[in-house]
């Protein structure tokens, strides 16, 4: 099996108003992993995501899904959109029905599945996102976090192979963020799907993501595992990003206070381990 599920080669995208949003992007989305796409506002993340499932057609360059270049015919696009599910940033522009149940059923209905199968997927989608008890509620009575989950459920019900999420944690409270990230992780483990997400919340990247692309003004400027990316703090700062808070603390300890860590730590548990191993050398 192909290690790369989705690949983009020398992708350019120019909007009708002349904005050159993507300037020759090359990236590979690994199968069954979680990939983060970081970048400041206007870096081109959303444009890139809409190229992933054929909403936008590249001005030049290629999008390759599972080893085959994307076919932009009606049939080809339909197949692509089944396989690559896109969850938008603002759930209010994705949820079109006043009934959560009906909204979630929209995707699978478009796949022309039998009714029984659609019902099974809708229930499953609602259950996975933890909003099964809200299926009778009208959409406009949900909280923002619940709407976000409903939007994810609507795409999950199509059982995509790649789940692409534009800012899945944007606007959520801390509990909401970890709730959404956990449900994505669980879904990924159960279904073996590949997840691509853009985020401004740098602190969750080392916790939940396996690979990172950093974008700046339409280009990919840094890529690698979270460890590799977060060991380049200066490069990150140049593109208006930062280290995770914990990694920042570790950096300061190392630079200002002469701590000697053998490895970069970006999460609480990694930092704890690093600090413990250092303190073992101390005598009280």
């Amino acid at each position: 099996m192909n290690e790369t599920i989705l690949e983009v080669k020398d992708l350019h995208y120019i909007y009708a108003d002349g904005t050159h949003a993507l300037k020759g992007i090359n990236l590979k989305i690994p199968r069954g992993k979680t990939t983060a796409v970081l970048g400041g506002n206007g870096a081109g993340k959303s444009t890139l995501f809409m190229n992933f499932n054929g909403i936008l057609k590249p001005t030049s360059g290629q999008v390759i899904f599972d080893g085959k270049a994307v076919d932009y015919s009606h049939k080809g696009l339909k197949e692509l959109r089944r396989a690559v599910g896109l969850v938008f940033q603002d759930p209010d522009s994705q949820l079109f029905s006043a009934s959560v149940y009906q909204d979630v059923s929209f995707g699978p209905m478009n796949l022309r599945l039998p009714e029984q199968e659609v019902r099974r997927r809708v229930e499953l989608g609602l259950e996975r996102t933890g909003i099964l008890d809200l299926k009778d509620k009208p959409t406009h009575c949900l909280s923002f976090g619940q709407k976000k989950r409903a939007a994810i459920a609507g795409v999950l019900a199509m059982e995509p192979e790649v789940l692409v999420l534009d800012e899945p944690t944007g606007g959520l409270d801390p509990m909401g963020v970890s709730g959404v990230m956990k449900l994505l992780k669980e879904t990924q483990e159960q279904l073996g799907i590949s997840v691509v997400m853009s985020t401004h919340d740098i602190d969750i990247v080392p916790l939940y993501c396996d690979y990172v692309y950093v974008m700046d003004r339409g280009n990919v400027c840094i890529e690698g595992t979270p460890k590799q990316v977060f060991s380049q703090p200066d490069a990150l700062r140049r593109v208006h990003l930062r280290l995770p808070r914990v990694a920042h603390l570790m950096e300061i300890l190392q630079r200002e206070d002469a701590f000697d860590f053998c490895d970069t730590a970006a999460t609480i548990s990694q930092a704890r381990k690093a600090l413990k191993s250092v303190s073992r050398g101390w005598s009280f």
Partner: peptide, 16 residues
């Protein structure tokens, strides 16, 4: 957003 979920001119949904 509808297009991304395979919209082809009709809002087909399933009622409870």
């Amino acid at each position: 957003a509808l297009e991304a979920r395979g919209y082809d001119g009709e809002l087909n949904v399933l009622e409870e």
